[in-house]
Each structure stands twice: as structure tokens, then as C-alpha cells.
Design a protein around this nucleic acid. Structure first.
Lengths: 192, 192
DNA sequence: GTTAGTAGTTACTACCTACTAACTTCGACG
DNA sequence: CGTCGAAGTTAGTAGGTAGTAACTACTAAC
């Protein structure tokens, strides 16, 4: 007999497991049955707590974006400009070890493509919040912000393909850290 | 009674439909039944022609990457350096209207995360070919190439979230075209 | 000790899934 | 005409799917 948990504890536990499953397999690839079994409960109880599979998925994706967003803001630590962007870049790279978070962003994006309005709107909103936070924190021109987030998307791809495990020239180049000075030049160029 | 086609014709037709389905719903989200019905044939015949769902999916993803790769090479048209990169950037942006191709790259990447070795290896290979072609064509330093492809990944995200339909500041910024001069500066910075 | 609320299960429905084997129908060629 | 290969179907298997309703067991408070 598994230990009885409080509702809140159980929710947290399930969310953790669901994040791993959805990160690996996506919305339609993951199964609520597997999630429940891993948590040591019945699948029916997952539905009681989260309503539908889609709602559970969206909660996971939202949490991943929010985790990333807060990590960026925290990394900047009140600074702004190039200094803030450099710190955030550092932090984004550090999150490569947390594949689950990066993959959830990717899976959320992929699921948004399905045309399902509910999912698409939710992921758009999460993405918008992240973008807005980075922009507000850095307080740099739009193109610099765009460049920063573009590198983020490449990092998500890198996580999905597990590029750190690939020892080839192109893969090593994909993992090259960008010089902080890069962003200065982008700013200079587009601000005229 | 549907018109009878040659094997080659049928393959091409099915691939076209399958690309749309997989682009929208991903590997596990799309159904072979739907693909078959849209093609006006039975689902069993799809398996006869392509073996498994996964193989059909991989053929679609590979075709998308290859289409993109060839478009890049063609856009450069024998040029190299910044000139080539600028032309390729133009072309990548032009492909925004072809959501299917961009989405297939995203769905392939997402499916690669599932840990399935076969899918992961195939997508890695496709991605490597694209990277290599861009690098060989541009003949610029690795960081510039990385920046170029990073913007590509952001464009894929943009396609998935259908950002052209979103009329908000952050979305408009995400769709801003990058000035060609940008890449010159990146190059200058990292070549020392 | 009863009550009440919450954590959790059993048992089920209705349906969709990839995939297979064995059969049929068509069209071109000798 | 006949036959042979290729295009395509019928009919199935075996198993997984999200989601529901109704029930049970535990725990804390009075």
C-alpha cells in the first residue's frame, strides 16, 4: 500500500513525472497510464486531479516556460543592458543540463502547431511572457532580444537531438558559447 | 472507383499528404488511417508502400530538411561569404509561407527527443547535412553559421505558433527581418 | 463513535491504433 | 485471348487510449 499523500503533494509529484513523460514523448506520445503507474496510483486519479490530459500537459509546459523565465530574471539580478544579457546567456546555457525544461518548451511548441486553439493560445502566452521578461530586463533594442531568443531556440533543438553526445565538428560548433561582445555589435548596427 | 496510379505517382501523392498530417500533428499525433483516407486508398496499402509509420514519417522529415537545404544552396547561387548568407537569409524568410516544411523540421526534432534511436539518428543526420551545406556555402566562421541557423530555429517556432497571425509588439519583433550587416559584425568579432 | 471530507480504486466504455495476410482487380504485353 | 505482375482491398488481430461513474478506505474533528 503506497503512502497516502495530501492533494497538494500528489499534484506536485504527478506534475514532476508528467513533465518527464511529456518532455520525452510530447502531448500525444505520452500516456496518462504510464504517468499514473510511475506515480504509484491509478490512472483514474490523475484525471480527477487534472481534468484532462491536455490540461495536465499545458500545466507542465507552462511551468517549464515559467521556470526558464524566472531563471533569466534572477540571473540578471537587477542589472540591465549587455551585462544583464550576458548573465542571462550564461544561465540559458547552464540550463542545458535540465533537458526536461528545454524539451517541454519544444514539445509545447510542436503541440501548438496541431491547430488546437486552446493549446496554441496557451503556448503563445507562455512564449510572450518569456519574451517580454527578457526584453524588459535587458532593455536593449528588439533585434538584440530576438537574437538572444533565437539562440535559445537552437539550444532547445540541441537538447532534443542530444547534441552533447555527438562528437562531430558541426555539433561542436552548435555548442560553441557566444562571445558577450556579439550583442554589442548587433545593437550598434541596428540602432542607427 | 478511384483512378489507378503507378506506384511512383502514388508514393509521391501519399508523401505530400503525409507531410501535411505529420507537420500538423507530429509522429504520434497523426494517423495512417487519415492519411490513407485523404489519398483515397486503404490504410493497408500505405503500409505496403512504406513499411511502417515511422519510416513514412522519417521520409517526410528528411524531404523537408532536404528541401530547405537545397533552397539555401540554390539561393546562394555559387556566391559565398556575406553575400551568400544574405541571400540564404532572404530565402529562409521566404519559406515562412511554406509552413509544412518548417513544421516538419520541428516535429522531426520533437520526435527525436523520444529517445528512439532510429528517429534521433535520422534527424541528427538531416540536421547535420543542412548545417554542413550552409557552412560550406557561406564559408564563414562557425559562430556566424551558428547565428544563421539559430534564427532559422526561431523561424520554425514562429511557424508553429503562427505568429504572423498575432498582432502584438513582441510578435512583430519576432518577425523583424535582420539586417545583412549584422553578420559582418559577428564575423569581425569572432575572427580575431 | 459517528460524521464528513478527501485520497484513492475498480471496473468499465467506446474507440482508435499500427500492422498483417490473404485475397482481388486491373492493365499491358505476347 | 490469356497470363502475369503490379495496384489495391477485405477483414482481421492485438493492444493501447482518454475519460467516467460509482464505490471504498483512510483520517481528523467533534
Amino acid at each position: 500500500m503506497a503512502t497516502r499523500m495530501s492533494g497538494r503533494e500528489r499534484r506536485v509529484q504527478i506534475l514532476g513525472i508528467a513533465e518527464e513523460e511529456f518532455a520525452a514523448a510530447g502531448l500525444s506520445g505520452a500516456s496518462t497510464e504510464t504517468i499514473a503507474r510511475r506515480a504509484g496510483i491509478t490512472q483514474a486519479y490523475v484525471f480527477r486531479l487534472f481534468g484532462t490530459k491536455k490540461l495536465l500537459f499545458l500545466e507542465c509546459v507552462d511551468a517549464a516556460f515559467e521556470r526558464m523565465r524566472l531563471a533569466m530574471v534572477a540571473a540578471a539580478g537587477g542589472a540591465s543592458g549587455i551585462e544583464a544579457l550576458t548573465a542571462m546567456g550564461h544561465e540559458y546555457n547552464a540550463m542545458l543540463v535540465d533537458r526536461t525544461t528545454l524539451l517541454l518548451q519544444l514539445q509545447g511548441t510542436a503541440a501548438a502547431a496541431a491547430g488546437d486553439g486552446e493549446v496554441r493560445d496557451a503556448v503563445r502566452a507562455s512564449f510572450a511572457r518569456l519574451w517580454q521578461s527578457v526584453a524588459d530586463t535587458a532593455q536593449l533594442d528588439p533585434v538584440t532580444v530576438k537574437a538572444f531568443l533565437a539562440f535559445g531556440m537552437l539550444l532547445n533543438t540541441s537538447a532534443a537531438l542530444d547534441l552533447p553526445e555527438v562528437d562531430e565538428p558541426w555539433s561542436r560548433q552548435a555548442r560553441t558559447r557566444i562571445q558577450p561582445g556579439l550583442f554589442t555589435h548587433i545593437t550598434t548596427e541596428t540602432n542607427r
